[in-house]
Nucleic acid binder design. Sequence first.
DNA 1: GGCGACTCCGAAAAGGTTTTCCACAACGTA
DNA 2: TACGTTGTGGAAAACCTTTTCGGAGTCGCC
Lengths: 343, 343
Amino acid sequence: MARHDAQRSNGRTATLEDVARLAGVSIATASKALNGRAHVSPATRAVVLEAAERLSYSPNALAQGLRALRTGIVGLLTSDLEGRLSIPILMGAEDAFGAGRTSVLLCDARGDSIREAHHLQTLLSRRVDGLIVVGARPDPRPSVGRDLPVPVVYAYAPSEDPADLSLVSDNVSGARLAIQHLIEVGRRSIAHITGDPTYGAAQDRAAGALAELAEQGLELAGGRVYFGSWSEAWGRNATKMLLSQTREIDAVFAGSDQIARGVIDTLHAAGLEVPGDIAVIGFDNWEIFTTSSRPPLSSIDMNLEILGRVAAERLSAALSGDLRAGVESLPCRLVPRESTTSV
Amino acid sequence: MARHDAQRSNGRTATLEDVARLAGVSIATASKALNGRAHVSPATRAVVLEAAERLSYSPNALAQGLRALRTGIVGLLTSDLEGRLSIPILMGAEDAFGAGRTSVLLCDARGDSIREAHHLQTLLSRRVDGLIVVGARPDPRPSVGRDLPVPVVYAYAPSEDPADLSLVSDNVSGARLAIQHLIEVGRRSIAHITGDPTYGAAQDRAAGALAELAEQGLELAGGRVYFGSWSEAWGRNATKMLLSQTREIDAVFAGSDQIARGVIDTLHAAGLEVPGDIAVIGFDNWEIFTTSSRPPLSSIDMNLEILGRVAAERLSAALSGDLRAGVESLPCRLVPRESTTSV
DNA sequence: GGCGACTCCGAAAAGGTTTTCCACAACGTA
DNA sequence: TACGTTGTGGAAAACCTTTTCGGAGTCGCC
């Protein structure tokens, strides 16, 4: 552990007053010099900078925030226990704010609304400049409240309140991307195995897939969408059912990478080649699955970093008075790998 | 988006002065009443609480921090891009601090030391009460600096500087747990397939496994430790090599869950039952792998939440003057599932 | 030499909270 | 009545920074 002593001999960390005293100027002048404001001669500015350097002065962000009525902190309120969603969104937000200008206070409510309310209270007490709320599943969730003193953006899971601004991934067009890609690589008999039908995302992806197939004059292979659960096991079971029903298939669009994983396993077990006999594409582009899959799995990426970035932009805009409301859908991105494009 | 107006008619959020005015008392009295200090009569206290309620007053944590020289914020500086390590550690730390009393400012350096230095500067400027540094891989990493004004605890990846305090998982005893468990379920011919030998963790786990086997009078099956990479593909390849060399095996201790996954796949492909013919145990207890594996994978959990909790405790202790240094090893935990204990 | 203009610097207030110390009132007792 | 005691409430300082406004000094020009 660091010796935990301070820059100044008396144990405190250096303040602007210390810098000013060492430089032989007033506090006001020191402040102006350090912040590059006018009305300071180059000579005194240099003296001040030198003094600050000597004391390794670091301005107290609390005092700055108190005075400026702006803390440069945004709260990220999440229920995503593994951080699979929050981390990319956080990184996108960090990027958009510009590193250093804004920090992110991460609070995990762990799916508990009492804990969420508590964290919300804490964040407001800390006078965050804005709030990003990340849901655990992509279905509408309760609003954290109208009339909060700071702007709020919901990411991934939209708010139930249409007066809030929500950013979500466009699952419909994402699914269309998947189908378009499969068609482009020459597939015509495409089945869709997906997760829990109570998830809006499952419905949206299915709807997008069906719509795109219809536009291309194709029908869904297997006769129906295979809804089930978001698990590898379901991917396996559904594939078995599918194969027992028809062999007239040359592609599977899986509703998640985990499901895709199960699909591929079962296809291999049945002696089928991927993508030779059947191409497979997943959804989520969760790297841990896509790259460890054999062959590497094509997938649809929900662009969560961009979601985070846009959330940050919307917060900034709101702080400048530009408030928005409603649900904003952001496009997904195709990430082709060998499971659809044999090399 | 919330209407973004405030509790008070004039657009600002209510301050203690507003509460005092509404209650018809002085600021000092209002403060004492709200904080439950003495020298306030029950009657006035009630009046003040009522006023605070009406204004939905929320104390300004910046001002509190400024005055108390304590912000109630700790910085979590990580290089773990997926949050797989950081999130459990963060949650453990949140728990230990007691929800609400302390918040965590999460900064991801993305493996870039310049960005790390920048974030460090920002955190210090925000006057965090302490710092937890989480490395991306469990090998010694450069210290963020001696003589920082706040205590620092390194978690997962220890600091190179012995004057720092580092908390790491005890990979040696973790490996022993795995071997003990395999022996307890009746296995005697145990092979070890693990990852990149340049990782200290790989060496430690191998050493622990060998030591435990030696103490039990057993020899490593396969004749050597199979070092390779932390990938499923290596798990598959190593298993093929192992099987081609000897069939006298009844258990595999894999150095990670991903490797274990590859091991199981290849065993299945070779017509072997898990755990009937060969038991398999992994390391990391990464739920996404352990539960989607078929059968569910036994594993060794590094207790990252506990790591986070202890980190928080050590920071608290340091703030009370109890500084420590050196590397502290925390025990791992066995999580048995069906891949070793057939039901 | 005096005056205006210009440059540079400093005093002070504001931002919100906590705590210390002091004042004041009421009450009981001598 | 006078004094000490107890119980409440308030004024003010401290935490640290930024910004406004005014003051002081210097230079040049008439």
